[in-house]
Amino acid sequence: MLRKIAFGLAATAMMSSAQAQEVVLKVAHFLPPMSTMHSRFIVPWCDKIEAESKGRMKCQIYPAMQLGGTPPQLLSQVRDGVADIVWTISGYTPGRFPISEVFELPFMTTTHEASARAVWDFIDEHAASEFEGVKRIANWVVGPYVIHLRDKDLKTIEDFRGMKIRAPSRLGNRMLTALGATPVGMPVPQISESLSRGVIDAAIVPWEVVPATKAHELTKFHVEVSGGRSLTTATSIYVMNQKRYDSLPPELKKVIDDNSGREVSAWVAAEFKVGDEGGRAAALGRGNKITEIPADEVKRWKDASQPVVDEWIAEVTSKGHDGRKLYERAVELVEKHSRN
Score class of each variant (00 low, 15 high):
109 T>F: 00
47 D>L: 09
281 A>Y: 05
143 G>C: 09
126 H>V: 06
225 V>I: 13
251 E>V: 11
234 A>K: 01
11 A>M: 11
273 K>L: 10
326 L>S: 02
80 D>H: 03
76 S>H: 14
257 D>A: 11
4 K>A: 13
220 K>E: 07
144 P>Y: 11
267 W>L: 10
201 D>K: 00
136 R>Q: 15
292 E>V: 15
59 C>E: 02
267 W>M: 11
63 P>W: 08
24 V>T: 15
99 I>P: 05
76 S>L: 07
67 L>I: 07
181 A>W: 01
62 Y>S: 09
229 R>I: 06
299 K>A: 11
202 A>F: 04
302 K>E: 15
300 R>T: 14
275 G>N: 01
17 S>K: 03
46 C>Y: 06
327 Y>M: 14
87 W>D: 05
210 V>R: 04
229 R>E: 03
166 R>C: 03
154 L>E: 04
290 I>P: 05
58 K>A: 08
124 D>G: 12
19 Q>K: 08
253 K>Y: 07
266 A>R: 06
241 N>C: 10
157 I>Y: 05
139 N>C: 03
20 A>K: 08
207 W>L: 05
295 A>N: 13
306 Q>E: 15
276 D>P: 07
225 V>Q: 05
36 T>H: 05
176 L>N: 00
284 L>E: 15
210 V>H: 01
274 V>L: 14
225 V>D: 00
203 A>R: 08
173 N>V: 08
129 S>E: 14
301 W>C: 07
191 I>S: 12
195 L>D: 01
126 H>N: 15
184 V>R: 07
